[in-house]
Design a protein around this nucleic acid. Structure first.
Length: 574
RNA sequence: CGGGGUAUAGCGCAGUCUGGCUAGCGCAUUUGGUUUGGGACCAAAGGGUCGCAGGUUCGAAUCCUGCUACCCCGACCA
């Protein structure tokens, strides 16, 4: 490709809206352009990167016997009504009507569509297990798009779905898919990606993993042990907390005028937050009150609580609802409240500690020396605590470290949630009707591209791994008005093209600095410069992206040497 | 959805408070010339419904009302 013809200009200044490096460079380098909030066009070099990422994904999916298909973006609402998600999913599902008034949706994921397909095409145990996948557009009407390609509304996703006759078979395939994902991210040159335990929550499965590109700009918080043996999303992370019981002392009501928060109460009484119990009230999806209690120095983990009470939409309860069960906001206690109207869930930190300060359900009063077992019985006890940096790793015993991550992929053991509700069956070897067990596997393609930039750039632009770089080699002709420069550059360009090398040829005759700055923004890993100075000695300069020092190659050796360099680059990601 | 901000040429911005000549600057673009190793120089040129609608006024980018879009923080996130 000749740079003089390339669509997509480079810009010198950072776009005012961009706050993270990948967003800045994607705009400045001419990879993408925003059309609307969270909606982007891909320009030629962006599209080439995406195509290369997709090719690697395809290769790995095909290796684990995936069969590529393509399902529609627009789906009838009735398909989503079958699974129940037409109602259960919020406004991020874009609903609309066609000209006949028929209710339609823009697919944000394809479990329904794939079950619709598989239930008619796969009817015998002999056809199982089977995996189908597609690389296709998804639309999610995000409340707030952000971070360039990190959180968008329309995006390309590879989504794969597997169907099995047994849980064992699913688990075995799940391992293969996990391995394939590791290969994908290695091959696209993502330097630091972790597979972590994640929250399958309402998706219906038991086991799931997220693949996180570690980045300070990630939206997810993850906890890892120092040796990375333990890796989990904050939503599900747990720690090896140790609590100690002391001799219970007599329950004592104390006057705490106007002291509502943990900090106020504990400092007023000359105690530490860990000597108190904190009450947090939520409203579940049916509007019922959930009373969560945790030791004062912890925070309630809403994901854990939400999973435990099987309610997808927990929200903070208002004071009116709290009072309706006999509790007093700011001075609430699980004792002496209407147990029929409220579900009480207490954290282990409460059940396994002693002599805590808790509310007295009376304005301006607390109790000292609350002890679970003596002062409260028969409530649900579980782990609803949010892990803090430095808490003890449940596996290694070491202090946990906090990282931020961009979710670039996820894999779920779904079970039969969709196959069952949508009447998907096959006949087993005994001629009996069975429901297949499902797994699903996603990769965000554009988000992966952005994540590679986050992990591989310098002040001047992205540094692409050769496996996904828009071109393998950039050829720069410095001063092509000079015949010998132009002639050699054209010759090298043609030779590389016919040798099957992806080459971007800067034939514009710009000043060196201008040309190199553009080259840095395009981030091609290998660069050849034809210049009068070098050519006087019969040499051409070779540079790697990211290094300011080059080598000089004799003109007649350029083709051999560049082929060797390209091969060596690919070797790094094999 | 809550809080904050922005909207003027392709991009980045000034002008708005305090209404007043033909709306300006840098970059980019086009033409001619000089240049050519890390974002050159000279000269000329093209490019604007000042987000939209309504109002006030002799006169509105500027004041008033309503709306919309976009960005940031938060909430939400199959």
């Amino acid at each position: 490709m000749r740079m003089s013809q390339l669509v997509g200009r480079r810009v010198k200044e950072d776009p005012k809206d961009a706050v993270i490096p990948s967003h800045k460079f994607l705009i400045r380098g001419g990879y993408v352009r925003q059309v609307s909030a969270g909606i982007f066009s891909l320009l030629p070099i962006g599209k080439r990167i995406i195509a290369k990422i997709e090719a690697i994904i395809r290769d790995e999916m095909n290796k684990i016997d995936g069969q590529e298909i393509m399902m529609p973006v627009v789906l009838p609402a009735e398909l989503w009504e079958e699974s129940g998600r037409y109602e259960s999913v919020g406004p991020e599902l874009l609903r609309f009507k066609d000209r006949n008034g028929k209710r339609m949706i823009l697919a944000m994921t394809h479990e329904e569509a794939v079950v619709h397909l598989i239930r008619t095409e796969v009817t015998s145990y002999k056809q199982l297990p089977v995996m189908v996948y597609q690389i296709q557009t998804k639309y999610r009407d995000e409340a707030r798009a952000r971070g360039g390609l990190i959180r968008v509304r329309e995006f390309t996703m590879k989504d794969a779905y597997s169907f099995h006759t047994s849980q064992e078979c699913l688990e075995e395939y799940y391992k293969e898919a996990h391995e394939a994902y590791v290969n994908v991210f290695r091959r696209i040159g993502m330097k630091n990606v972790l597979s972590i335990e994640s929250n399958s929550g309402m998706m219906g499965g038991k086991v799931s993993h997220e693949f996180m590109a570690v980045s300070e700009f990630g939206e997810d918080t993850i906890f890892v042990s120092p040796d990375y043996t333990y890796r989990a999303n904050r939503e599900v992370a747990h720690a090896d907390w140790k609590f100690e019981k002391e001799e219970p002392q007599e329950l004592e009501k104390v006057h705490t005028p106007g002291k509502e928060s943990i900090e106020e109460v504990s400092s007023f009484l000359g105690l530490k937050p860990e000597n108190t119990g904190k009450a947090v009230f939520y409203k579940d999806h049916e509007g019922k009150l959930v009373f969560a209690m945790i030791r004062g120095d912890f925070e309630v983990n809403e994901s854990k609580l939400s999973n435990f009470v099987q309610s997808a939409e927990l929200e903070f309860a208002d004071d009116e609802l709290i009072r309706s069960v006999g509790a007093v906001p700011g001075f609430a206690s699980p004792m002496s409240i209407d147990r029929d109207k409220v579900r009480i869930v207490i954290d282990r930190s409460i059940a396994e500690s002693s002599n805590l300060v808790v509310g007295a359900n009376e304005k301006d009063y607390h109790y000292k020396n609350f002890n679970y077992g003596r002062d409260l019985q028969d409530v649900e006890i579980t782990d609803i605590a949010t892990v803090r940096e430095g808490d003890t790793c449940p596996v290694t015993g070491q202090p946990l470290k906090l990282e931020r991550g961009i979710e670039v992929g996820n894999i779920f053991q779904l079970g039969t949630k969709y196959t069952e509700t949508m009447n998907c069956h096959y006949l087993d070897e005994n001629g009996k009707s069975q429901v297949p067990i499902m797994g699903c596997y996603g990769i965000g393609v554009g988000r992966s591209m952005a994540s590679v930039i986050e992990q591989s750039h310098d002040d001047y632009g992205p540094i692409w791994p050769i496996t996904i770089a828009p071109y393998e080699v950039q050829l720069c002709a410095l001063n092509p008005k000079k015949d010998e420069i132009r002639e050699l550059s054209e010759k090298l360009y043609k030779e590389m093209k016919s040798a099957g090398i992806d080459v971007l040829y800067d034939d514009r005759g710009e000043k060196a600095g201008f040309m190199f700055s553009d080259a840095d923004l395009i981030g091609i890993p290998l660069r050849l410069v034809v210049s009068p100075k070098m050519l006087a000695d019969g040499k051409v300069e070779f540079k790697r992206r990211g290094s300011r020092d080059g080598e000089t190659w004799p003109v007649e050796e350029v083709m051999d040497k560049i082929k060797a360099e390209i091969a060596a680059e690919y070797e790094k990601f094999a």
